[in-house]
């Protein structure tokens, strides 16, 4: 009974995501409140990653579920704080809608609270590449920085450092300021 319910729920969510409009509105974060009058050091804070606001009139309103569905849980970033996808340099290290969907459902909201996605609440469905890239793995670029923890990772520790191995790509989680970043690296020896 529970499994059937879950299947129906997932099917409902997947079908809803397929019904999403392709025209999307995306806005970037342009500014935020200062949380101090003075700043101790000379640097501006490493801002939370720029995010896009996804707006649609078709958003399903499931109580207790995320209001926006995420076909792709990963956004490639070339610089910290910059969400722009550079044409020709796209890395989609995640997969078809089904698997992403499942991954997103479990990763994002459970036990009554949001997972820590480092301010990555609003996703960018306006990036045509992410949506149409479809199934399969394209080459990952060493040094590329992601702001979300990739899906389907296995953790390992080498020489005291933590690495994640996710769908064929090695990442090193790092902390930049207080923002988590996942950097594509070569396989640790």
């Amino acid at each position: 009974m529970k499994r059937k319910f879950l299947t129906i729920l997932l099917a409902g969510l997947v079908s809803t995501s397929l019904a999403m409009p392709t025209e999307t509105f995306a806005a970037s974060n342009r500014g935020q409140a200062k949380q101090s009058v003075n700043r101790a050091g000379a640097k501006k804070p490493q801002n939370p990653p720029r995010r896009n606001v996804y707006q649609t009139n078709n958003r399903p309103n499931n109580a207790g579920n995320r209001p926006n569905n995420r076909p792709n849980n990963n956004r490639p970033n070339n610089r910290p704080g910059n969400n722009k996808v550079v044409a020709g340099n796209t890395v989609v290290v995640n997969h078809g809608v089904d698997r992403n969907y499942h991954g997103s459902y479990y990763n994002d909201y459970h036990h009554g609270h949001w997972d820590d996605h480092d301010d990555d609440f609003f996703d960018t469905l306006g990036t045509a590449v992410a949506v149409t890239a479809g199934v399969g793995l394209t080459a990952a670029v060493i040094g590329e920085i992601f702001e979300d923890e990739p899906d389907d990772c296995q953790q390992s520790v080498h020489y005291g450092q933590t690495y994640l191995y996710c769908n064929g790509v090695w990442y090193q989680p790092t902390m930049a300021g207080t923002n988590m970043q996942y950097v594509v690296v070569e396989a640790p020896r």
Binding site: Q35, A40, G41, K44, Q46
Partner: peptide, 22 residues
């Protein structure tokens, strides 16, 4: 105070309401 300066300069870390310490 030194900590807050270094954490900001070296790592880009800051905390809310730093003024309480500055």
């Amino acid at each position: 105070h030194d900590l807050l300066v270094k954490a900001n300069d070296q790592f880009g870390i800051d905390v809310p309401l730093e003024d309480l310490f500055l």
